[in-house]
C-alpha cells in the first residue's frame, strides 16, 4: 500500500504533474523570453504558457472527418502520462519512488512514447501537412536517438548497472564529460529547437504534427512538451552533474543547471537557421556517431 502511495505521489505531485507543469511553464517562458530578448523584443508576459494552456482547455475540440475518435483523443493523454511517469522515475532529491533495477531502460522507453505519439498524431490526422511532419519526426528520431541513447547507455556501462541511483553514484570522470557532450548534441533535436526544428517547421509545413488538434487535446500536447522540457533538462542535471551530500543543495543545483542548459540551447536556436532533413540526419550520424563512438571507447578504456 505504501509503495502504491509513493508511486502516486511521485506521478501526481513530486516530481510529477503538480511540480513539473509549473516548472515546465516557467522554462518555456524563460525560453520564449530569452529568444525575444536576443531578438531585441520585449517577449511574452510571465504567465504566458499558463494562459496558453488554460485558453486551449476552454476551447472547442474539432475532430476532422474520417479520423478515429478514440486514437485522436487518446494520443495526447498517453503522451502526458508517459512523460509524467518518466519524470517520476528520475531520482530528483525527495523523489518517493525507490530506484528499481533496470529503471533506466524503462525511462528510455517512456521517453520515446511522446515521440511515437507525435508521429501517430500526424498520421492519424489525415492532414497532408501532419503526415509530412510525422514522417520528419520519425526520421529525425532515428537520427538523434543515436547520441542520446549512447550517452545514457555509456553511463550505465560505467556504472555497471541499469539503475538510476547507480548512474548518479558513478565517480566523476572523463566519461561524464564525453557523455554530457553527446547528450547535448541530441538535446536540440529532442526539444524540437531551431537547427533541428524540422518536424515543427511552421514556415514550411504550417505547424507540427498536431496541426489538426485543437482545444483540450492540443493543451495536453503543449503540457506534454512542457513536461518533456523539464524531463530532459533534469535528466541531464541528474546524470551528468556531480551530486552533493545535501539534497536541498542538489535540488537547487539541478534546477539552475537545467535553466543554464536551456539557455545554451536557446542561444543555439536563436543563432541558427533550420537545417534540411538530410543535413540533420547526416549531422547526427556523422558527428553524433563520432561522439558516440568516442564516448563508448572511453567507457571501455577506463
Amino acid at each position: 500500500m505504501n509503495a502504491v502511495w509513493s508511486y502516486l505521489v511521485a506521478i501526481a505531485v513530486w516530481p510529477g504533474l503538480l511540480f513539473a507543469a509549473p516548472l515546465g511553464w516557467l522554462e518555456l517562458w524563460f525560453m520564449r523570453k530569452l529568444v525575444a530578448r536576443l531578438q531585441g523584443r520585449q517577449g511574452p508576459p510571465f504567465f504566458q504558457p499558463f494562459f496558453d494552456v488554460m485558453k486551449l482547455l476552454g476551447k472547442e475540440t474539432v475532430i476532422p472527418r474520417g479520423v478515429s475518435r478514440g486514437i485522436f483523443l487518446a494520443l495526447p493523454l498517453v503522451s502526458v502520462a508517459a512523460v509524467t511517469a518518466a519524470l517520476a522515475i528520475v531520482p530528483l532529491p525527495g523523489n518517493p519512488v525507490p530506484s528499481l533495477p533496470g529503471d533506466v531502460v524503462l525511462l528510455l522507453y517512456l521517453m520515446e512514447v511522446p515521440v511515437l505519439c507525435e508521429v501517430l498524431a500526424g498520421y492519424v490526422s489525415r492532414s497532408i501537412y501532419g503526415q509530412v511532419a510525422a514522417m520528419r519526426e520519425a526520421i529525425l528520431s532515428l537520427a538523434y536517438n543515436l547520441p542520446f541513447l549512447v550517452a545514457i547507455i555509456a553511463m550505465a556501462q560505467v556504472a555497471g548497472s541499469f539503475q538510476m541511483r547507480a548512474l548518479q553514484e558513478v565517480p566523476y570522470g572523463l566519461v561524464h564529460l564525453l557523455a554530457a557532450v553527446t547528450f547535448l548534441l541530441a538535446l536540440p533535436a529532442r526539444m524540437k529547437l531551431n537547427p533541428f526544428s524540422i518536424a515543427n517547421a511552421e514556415h514550411e509545413i504550417i505547424a507540427d504534427s498536431h496541426i489538426e488538434y485543437s482545444g483540450p487535446p492540443l493543451a495536453l500536447f503543449k503540457l506534454s512538451h512542457a513536461i518533456e522540457v523539464v524531463l530532459l533538462t533534469e535528466l541531464f542535471a541528474v546524470v551528468f552533474i556531480p551530486a552533493t551530500p545535501w539534497p536541498l543543495v542538489n535540488l537547487v543545483v539541478y534546477l539552475v543547471a537545467g535553466i543554464l542548459v536551456l539557455g545554451g540551447v536557446t542561444l543555439l536556436a536563436t543563432t541558427t537557421a533550420r537545417l534540411r532533413l538530410t543535413q540533420a540526419f547526416r549531422f547526427y550520424w556523422v558527428w553524433g556517431g563520432l561522439a558516440s563512438a568516442i564516448t563508448m571507447a572511453a567507457t571501455l578504456v577506463r
Binding site: R37, G40, R41, Q42, G43, L267, T271
Partner: peptide, 16 residues
Amino acid sequence: AMLKTILGNLLRPSRT
C-alpha cells in the same frame, strides 16, 4: 557576427 548581434540585443533594452 550573429552571436555578437544577438548578445548585443540582450544587453541593450528592447526596442519594443
